[in-house]
């Protein structure tokens, strides 16, 4: 190459760099434009509230929720010395402990039996997923009746077999278990659908070759189904835990947190503190605790889960 043509050549390269930069900028702006609506709403309704909640938790507020006095950690000290909140925390953890394994086991069972290809299976799948279509409010009404002390189905069965009636929702010893039972019912629809989806995505050749080897049902369940399903189960467990921590509707309808705060789960507690007692400061402190719990749960889930989960 001679020197005459070398000059414009150098110039060109710089020129191209400039153009490339401009193009990248354009793509960047376009990307932001596509994401803007979501980002905007996330900022207003998720990120800002989160920060605002933390902020509020350091203050006392008046009835309108305007901050009045900065109290530092006092709200946190208050809630952690409050037996009611501690009770609420314990109940919440117990509730999660009851509902998550319960939901998963029942749903897994239903999904496994509904995964067989036989006539009319569509009908059964429909029934098993039906509770997803029932709102918390409607489901709570159904269960209010089942739990009803005098005309309720459960007590009628107890009486038929000669047992004493139980105050399912009014007896402090039973209330949390009863609410958990109804919650498991409400959750199985969704969980069943997800697990069934996971089951159906397992390559059927695996089962065929196991059949050729003469493997039995439980062997296949243990060696093929569960390992291949582990990503699904992992997801379902995570979602169920988070959902359980956020339970509100059935508490509001079934027990209103009672009896003697047995079922006063954390979200209900936050709701009452904020919108009944107008203690936005302590309510926010509780919300921060809830946020931290869920954060820790997710992190633990990911740390534990990622190692054990079998991805294809």
């Amino acid at each position: 190459m001679n020197t005459e043509s070398a000059m414009p050549f150098e110039y060109n390269q710089v020129h191209f760099e400039e153009l490339k930069k401009q193009q990248r900028k354009k793509v960047f702006l376009k990307g932001l434009l596509f994401l803007l609506p979501s980002l905007l709403l996330f900022s207003i309704f998720i990120f800002y509230p989160m920060i605002r909640t933390v902020y509020l938790s350091f203050f006392l507020t008046n009835q309108a929720g305007i901050t009045t006095v900065f109290v530092g950690m006092q709200n946190y000290i208050d809630i952690f010395t409050s037996p009611i909140f501690m009770k609420s925390l314990t109940s919440t953890f117990l509730f999660v402990l009851f509902t998550v394994p319960g939901t998963i086991i029942v749903s897994l069972f239903l999904a496994v039996i509904a995964n067989e290809k036989i006539k009319g299976i569509g009908f059964f799948r429909m029934i098993f997923s039906s509770t997803m279509g029932v709102s918390v409010a409607a489901a709570s009404v159904f269960w209010l009746f089942l739990f009803h002390p005098s005309i309720g189905f459960f007590n009628k069965i107890l009486v038929t077999f000669g047992f004493d009636k139980i105050g399912w929702l009014t007896n402090p010893e039973w209330a949390l278990a009863s609410v958990s039972l109804s919650t498991i019912w409400m959750n199985i629809g969704f969980t069943f659908l997800i697990i069934l989806g996971g089951l159906q995505s397992i390559d059927s050749h695996l089962y065929e070759s196991a059949n050729i080897d003469g493997a039995g049902f439980f062997y296949k369940l243990r060696r093929i189904t569960i390992p291949m399903l582990s990503p699904t189960l992992f997801f379902v467990v995570t979602v169920s835990i988070i959902n359980s921590f956020q339970t509100f509707g059935q508490i509001d309808m079934l027990t209103k947190g009672g009896p003697s705060n047995e079922t006063n789960l954390i979200v209900y507690s936050i709701y009452r503190e904020a919108f009944v007692n107008y203690q936005y400061g302590t309510a926010s402190a509780q919300a921060v605790i809830l946020f931290i719990i869920i954060l820790i749960m997710t992190v633990i889930q990911f740390k534990l889960g990622e190692r054990k989960v079998h991805y294809q």
Partner: peptide, 17 residues
């Protein structure tokens, strides 16, 4: 695909950009 270096000409005109 972006051209990292060099010149592409189409019909004797630079076309990199």
């Amino acid at each position: 695909e972006e051209i990292t270096g060099g010149v592409l000409k189409l019909n004797d005109e630079v076309a990199n950009h």
